[in-house]
């Protein structure tokens, strides 16, 4: 605060007062954020460079990049690379996470857009439908994941039962346990759960578009699809992209859904699951911290790249 006032000596008293008030209002949130976000993050990054284990967090020693990558020498002139970056399971989980996020967010965007377009029209009972559509989003993930686990159960699940009755499959499929279907089961449940959120954000963007330009387009006889592509889509694109960023961030740290539905499956192990396994199950706390740190940077990298790329697009549109 002092530095601020010194660099701007010509600020009026009123402006200084306002600035002080602004900082006063911001301070509680900054302190809370520092306590619950910045500090744990810093600790995690630090643990990643130590030999900490769960029962010995106190006297962890600095080991540099050992957890990330190091050459393990067998002593006979041979050896191998070790560390998170050399672990094929880690890279598999990175790939799984990105594949999951890309697929589920794409499907959610398309479905969300369609639902938002429908909800944007006025029809009898719209308010009720709008509320009803939010139910999947309102259910805690653990609950809905458990619910879907039962529905997808290979012996007692209703999904198998229905598909067999209509003759789409001959024998029950273990949806969550079969490597070929596990990821699709996860994506399907995630789509079911988060499409409403997407639809709601897109609906908000749609409602920002003024009605009068649609009337102007009607006077011009612009066909519906062209109108959507040339008018609606460009106008909701900023909102749509924000929704996609939110969802992507969320999807990249997917944990609970997979933890409940398909634990211990290579086919669906995400970065978060990988980090947790090492942190707590395998008692490799430092190694898990290194994985968590990498997770943080992967998500940051993808998000920044996405924002960069789309902002370029936005500027071209604007």
């Amino acid at each position: 605060m002092d530095a601020e006032t010194m660099t701007a000596p010509d600020l009026s008293r009123l402006a200084r007062q306002r600035k002080r008030a602004a900082w006063a209002f911001l301070a509680p949130m900054l302190i809370v954020l520092a306590a619950v976000a910045a500090w744990p993050l810093a600790r995690t990054i630090w643990f990643g460079f130590t030999d900490a284990s769960l029962d010995q967090l106190g006297n962890a020693q600095w080991v540099g990049f050992q957890n990330y990558l190091h050459w393990f020498d067998y002593g006979n002139g041979q050896g191998e690379w070790e560390g998170v970056l050399a672990d094929p399971r880690w890279w598999r989980s990175v790939w799984n996470t990105i594949w999951f996020a890309g697929l589920s967010v794409s499907i959610e965007t398309v479905f969300g857009l369609v639902i938002a377009l429908v909800l944007h029209r006025s029809f009898p009972g719209r308010g009720l439908v709008r509320a009803a559509i939010l139910i999947p989003w309102a259910i805690p993930t653990i609950v809905s994941a458990k619910m879907w686990a039962w529905m997808l159960h290979d012996q007692f699940g209703i999904v198998n039962d229905m598909l067999m009755r209509v003759g789409l499959i001959d024998s029950a499929i273990a949806w969550t346990a079969t490597p070929g279907t596990a990821m699709f089961a996860i994506v399907a449940v995630d789509v079911w759960k988060t499409t409403p959120f997407m639809a709601l954000l897109i609906l908000a963007a749609l409602q920002m578009v003024p009605d009068d330009i649609y009337e102007a387009a009607r006077m011009d006889g612009v066909p519906a699809f062209r109108l959507f592509r040339k008018v609606t889509l460009p106008l909701i694109l900023p909102g749509l992209l924000v929704a996609v960023v939110f969802r992507t961030l969320d999807a990249l740290r997917v944990f609970d859904l997979i933890y409940v539905l398909t634990p211990n499956t290579d086919a669906t192990r995400s970065m978060s699951i990988y980090a947790r396994e090492n942190l707590f199950d395998y008692d490799k706390f430092a190694y898990g911290s290194a994985a968590s740190t990498l997770l943080f940077f992967v998500i940051a990298l993808i998000t920044i790249t996405f924002i960069r790329v789309t902002r370029m697009n936005l500027e071209r549109e604007d």
């Binding site: 003024p210 009068d212 330009i213 009337e215 102007a216 387009a217 009607r218 006077m219 011009d220 006889g221 612009v222 040339k230 008018v231 460009p234 106008l235 549109e317 604007d318």
Partner: peptide, 28 residues
């Protein structure tokens, strides 16, 4: 509406905000 041979000027102008003046005029 498009086949009636009418053109309308709206109170709120109803210009497409993301198009240039030229595009606004050409779009219809």
């Amino acid at each position: 509406p498009a086949k009636r041979g009418c053109a309308m000027v709206f109170q709120s102008y109803a210009l497409y905000p993301h198009m240039t003046v030229r595009e606004n005029m050409a779009f219809g």
